[in-house]
Each structure stands twice: as C-alpha cells, then as structure tokens.
C-alpha cells in the first residue's frame, strides 16, 4: 500500500506509535471505548506474537551485530473508512497490540487526530514523562565525586 511520503507526517506518526507501544492496556482501552465505541476496526491479519532480532553496534557506534531476540506482538487493522493501523508492542500482549493498531488507524484520520492526541497520546506522554523524571531524580541522588588521594610519601 502507498503511504503518504510527507516526512513530517511520518515522523509524527512514528512518535504516536512509540507512545501507543508504551501504553498500558487501560490507557488505550478506556479512551477508545469512551470516544470511538463504534470504530468498527477489523483485523487484516490475526494478532500474532513473534520475534524481533535486536541489533547492537560493535563498540556502541560501529558495525551492527545480532545481540539476541525480543518477543513482540503485532496487529494490523482497518477502519471502515479505509485507514490501516499497525500495532507493535514488545512482549506477548495481544490485547495491547490490537488496541495500539486501532489507535494508529484513528490517528491517520485527520478528523480524529486531534482527539486521539488529547484523549490518548497526551495522558500516556504525561505518565511516561513523570516516570522518566522520577528515575532521573533517583539516579541523580547516586551521583558520585571521587577524589584522588595523594599518597603520604609523595605529599612531602
């Protein structure tokens, strides 16, 4: 299928998909039920669990190598209006993956996008930002300053 090639739009959709992938089941289910109870999305493929091979880089910035796999669940849905949504989440979470796919499909409809942003994406982003802030302040409390001691015989 041909997707819009607008790089800004793709980047915005990628950001949204990143938030859908990190959402809890309730963070997707509740707003979808409240605002789009009759979205009518149908599965284009059965929701399926599989693997993604995770790659690292030699030395952190060099050539790629295969580090090991992770489990991932994917869902592909289509709205009656034709928008196709993809849901990919780490782990084995079929319900979350399907809800993420529905949310992605709705996000592509310009009519729904503003509400998807306000009702689904913003609360997820707020929670993630708070969690990140908490981790950062906890970590910051373990910041360490080591002092190099001058040995006695060298001091004189």
């Amino acid at each position: 299928m041909s997707e819009p090639a607008d790089p800004d739009l793709i980047e915005a959709r990628r950001r949204a998909m990143g938030l859908f992938a990190r959402a809890t089941e309730a963070e997707l289910r509740e707003p979808l039920q409240q605002h789009w109870p009759d979205h009518g999305a149908r599965d284009l493929k059965p929701v399926e669990a599989g693997l993604v091979m995770l790659r690292g880089r030699t030395g952190g910035d060099g050539a790629a190598f295969n580090l090991g796999e992770a489990s991932v669940t994917r869902a592909v849905v289509e709205l009656p209006t034709g928008e196709r949504g993809f849901g990919h989440v780490l782990g084995r979470h079929p319900a979350r993956a399907r809800l993420a796919a529905v949310a992605d499909a709705l996000w592509q409809s310009e009519a729904a996008r503003t509400l998807v942003q306000a009702a689904i994406l913003s609360p997820i982003a707020t929670r993630l930002s708070a969690e990140k802030g908490r981790h950062q302040t906890e970590t910051a409390a373990t910041r360490v300053d080591f002092f190099t001691m001058v040995r006695g015989e060298d001091a004189a």
């Binding site: 399926e48 669990a49 599989g50 693997l51 993604v52 091979m53 995770l54 790659r55 690292g56 880089r57 952190g60 910035d61 790629a64 295969n66 580090l67 796999e69 992770a70 489990s71 991932v72 994917r74 990140k132 981790h135 950062q136 970590t139 373990t142 360490v144 300053d145 080591f146 002092f147 190099t148």
Partner: peptide, 27 residues
C-alpha cells in the same frame, strides 16, 4: 516456536536513559 518478524535498527546506547554509569578511567 515463534516466527521472526524482522530485525531492529541497531540500538543507540548513546541515547540511553541512564540509570548507572561509571568509569574507572576518568573521575
């Protein structure tokens, strides 16, 4: 038992949300 859907982009460890970071070479 699981199919492989694909490979990831190489992980960007420089972009890590760091929880621990130590060096024995630079204080």
């Amino acid at each position: 038992t699981l199919p492989r859907f694909g490979v990831s982009e190489p992980l960007e460890t420089a972009q890590m949300l760091v929880r621990r970071r130590i060096s024995a070479t630079y204080k």
